[in-house]
């Protein structure tokens, strides 16, 4: 097959800008997130619940360092069938209707604004402005299976699979620059949007679970089946030998 030649203007007007845009959007998102996140006031109920969950988790994990009676005492406090904390506390599910609570609505809007909108807007804009170019060629041969991945919206059957179209170059950047944000902005940055998406799917985006009664039930069960195994039993043996 004859070698394809790309106009070198594509390099400076499509290839380079796309990478710069993806990177800068990530940085801007990070600072916007810092700018917009104000300290939320938590209400008492929510606070008690999350702290109780935290403590119960600690008991499950580190209970092995306590003497048996102390462990059982705490376990009983949380999981006793009649008067345990998790049993007694009846919480109605706190999934609020966002329309009725303006505060929740602004929070939600902010979250959406920061996660969804850039994805949709930037992605749409790039599709509109840069669609249909071939940008570059990856420096290694690929099989034809990769064609739909690397040549989005360029439908040429006979084209070598190593060519990358502009839309695909944007997507490759989106994922490949993830660890670069870690490098530039430090850990736990907001620019890492792919991680935020994963969090949303598993429902762990907030430290506070939406449905507290469900979380209580789950924690109650896992604490109930936790047996006490004292880690310090027989510790003197390691000193005697």
């Amino acid at each position: 097959m004859a070698e394809l030649l790309l106009d070198s203007k594509i390099r400076f007007w499509v290839f380079l800008p796309l990478m710069a845009i993806t990177f800068l959007v990530g940085i801007i998102k990070h600072y916007l997130f810092i700018f917009m996140s104000n300290d939320k006031t938590v209400d008492k109920q929510q606070l008690t619940d999350s702290q109780a969950l935290l403590r119960s988790r600690l008991i499950r994990e580190n209970g092995k360092y306590l003497p048996k009676e102390s462990f059982l005492m705490r376990k009983n406090y949380f999981t006793n069938e009649d008067s345990g904390f998790f049993v007694k506390q009846k919480r109605q599910s706190t999934v609020k209707n966002p329309m009725s609570d303006p505060k929740a609505m602004t929070e939600m809007l902010k979250g959406n604004f920061l996660n969804m909108i850039p994805m949709v807007v930037i992605g749409g804009w790039i599709n509109w402005a840069y669609a249909g170019f071939l940008c570059t060629k990856v420096p290694f041969p690929l099989t034809f299976r990769f064609k739909p991945m690397l040549q989005k919206d360029v439908n040429l059957v006979s084209l070598d699979a190593s060519w990358v179209s502009s839309a695909s170059w944007y997507i490759i950047n989106l994922f490949g620059l993830r660890s670069m944000y870690n490098l530039v902005l430090g850990e736990n940055n907001a620019a890492d949007q792919t991680k935020a998406m994963q969090d949303q799917m598993s429902g762990a985006a907030l430290s506070m679970p939406d449905d507290i009664s469900k979380a209580f039930k789950a924690e109650n069960e896992s604490l109930t089946i936790t047996e006490h195994k004292w880690l310090l039993k027989g510790i003197e043996q390691s000193f005697l030998n």
């Binding site: 070698e3 030649l5 790309l6 070198s8 594509i10 390099r11 290839f15 380079l16 990478m19 940008c135 570059t136 060629k137 990856v138 420096p139 990358v164 490759i172 950047n173 490949g176 620059l177």
Partner: peptide, 16 residues
């Protein structure tokens, strides 16, 4: 892969 492709595309004129 990202950086490899990027600089390969930027520097190697033979493909462009």
């Amino acid at each position: 892969l990202l950086f490899w492709t990027f600089l390969y595309g930027m520097c190697i004129d033979s493909i462009i």
